[in-house]
Simulated assay, not measured.
Amino acid sequence: MTDMSTTPAGEYEAQLGDYFALLKPRVMQLVVFTAVVGMLAAPVSVHPIVGFASILFVAIGAGASGALNMWWDADIDAIMRRTQNRPIPSGRVQPKEALAIGVALSGLSVMMLGLAANLLAAGMLLFTILFYAVFYSMWLKRATPQNIVIGGAAGAFPPVIGWIIATGSFSIEAWLMFALIFMWTPPHFWALALFMRNDYDDAKVPMLTVTHGRRATRRHILGYTVLLVIVAVGTGFTAIGGPIYLVTSAILNGMFLLGAIRIWQRDEDDSEADNFQVERKFFRLSLWYLFLHFGAILVEATLRSYGLGGWA
């Protein structure tokens, strides 16, 4: 929980960029991209103005979640090297400001998405914000080593919201996109945790690397990667897949599985000597992995709109 004592003393007049950083713009980019893909992959077209406005409000909702997360986690962000320069622990933004911004943007984004698109999309956005800010940030993150597994669902909802913006309903295709992000999240974050373990140790966050050790974490990465491969490649044979997606997925998943196997085979005695280069490479690959999968879904959707894509 946020502790005012962790915020450096001293006067500082926050700049616009400080408030923007509070919204986690890098995470927002992924949210926007996957939501756009979910909307465009749907079998129902959306008016460009409605689509733009809807995605804008989804982005604002994602930013609100980021602000609430930073408000709550300011105490551990001040301890971890990776997060010490965030707006609150660095003293550029005060905790009360972050809380106010998060709450205000949450209400604004949900209300406006309901007006721009439909109430189901707005409800899903509200659920996503609450899931990330309350269920994950305030409870799971500090309570269980499975925090990132369950909490990863928050980052997997945007394509579902995008699909609902277009169709006003759920479908198996939307949940396949959800599953793709959900299964990708644990290997992605556990690889990061392997070479950032001291941060989680110092902050007393029960990441799997802290509670069960690096060897168990590597086994979990391999296990989840195998499940991810099944979901990702299998999606290629569905209505949102197609030849381009399937080829892209086959190549990416071959590389990803090989990387997970190399992590699993790692010798603990060599961990410090090679500076976790295997884990770093796997983590960088994971960033491209998700982007290219959703990019392929978008390409297939675009081709289908011209009667060229998919398996038809």
Rank of each mutant, 00 (worst) to 15 (best):
S90M: 02
I88Y: 05
L222K: 07
S305E: 12
N275D: 15
F127N: 07
P43S: 02
S249M: 08
E13A: 14
R304H: 11
I101C: 05
S5F: 06
S5Q: 14
S171V: 02
V103H: 10
F157T: 08
L222Q: 09
L176K: 09
R92K: 14
P158K: 07
D3L: 14
G10K: 03
M39E: 03
I240G: 14
S171M: 05
I164Y: 08
I221R: 06
S249V: 09
R81T: 00
R142F: 09
I101G: 07
L227M: 13
H293S: 08
V278H: 15
G223R: 14
V37S: 00
A260C: 07
K204V: 10
Y12V: 11
S169M: 06
I164S: 02
L22K: 07
S106K: 05
G66V: 04
M70P: 04
G241E: 07
I101L: 14
G91L: 04
E11V: 06
E272H: 08
I161M: 11
H188K: 09
I244K: 05
A143D: 08
Y289A: 06
L140F: 12
F294E: 09
L227S: 11
M177G: 12
V134P: 06
W311K: 14
G63W: 01
L292P: 12
P25K: 04
R219G: 13
G155L: 07
G38Y: 06
L99C: 13
G236H: 12
S106F: 10
L192N: 12
A62F: 00
S65D: 01
I244M: 04
A21Y: 06
A53R: 00
G242Q: 02
A153P: 05
I101A: 15
G61R: 02
L130F: 15
R218N: 13
G168H: 10
V37I: 08
E13Q: 14
R280Q: 09
V233W: 11
D75W: 01
G63E: 01
I79T: 04
T167N: 06
I150T: 14
T211E: 15
T6P: 01
T248V: 11
A179Y: 15
F52C: 01
G295E: 05
T235L: 13
W175D: 06
Q146L: 06
A122E: 11
V32S: 01
P8V: 01
D202G: 10
M80Q: 01
D18H: 00
E272Q: 15
T83D: 00
A156V: 03
A301L: 11
E173G: 08
R214S: 15
E268W: 10
S65R: 01
L228I: 04
L194M: 15
A104E: 02
P206K: 13
H220T: 13
S171R: 05
G242P: 11
I49S: 06
A35K: 06
I79K: 11
K204M: 07
V226P: 04
F33W: 04
A216S: 10
D202N: 14
D3N: 15
G241I: 04
V27N: 02
D199N: 13
A153N: 07
A239M: 11
S5C: 00
R92Q: 00
R262D: 08
G114Y: 13
P25G: 01
T34W: 05
L68F: 05
R215T: 10
K96M: 11
G63D: 04
W71L: 05
E97S: 12
R142C: 05
A100T: 15
L23P: 07
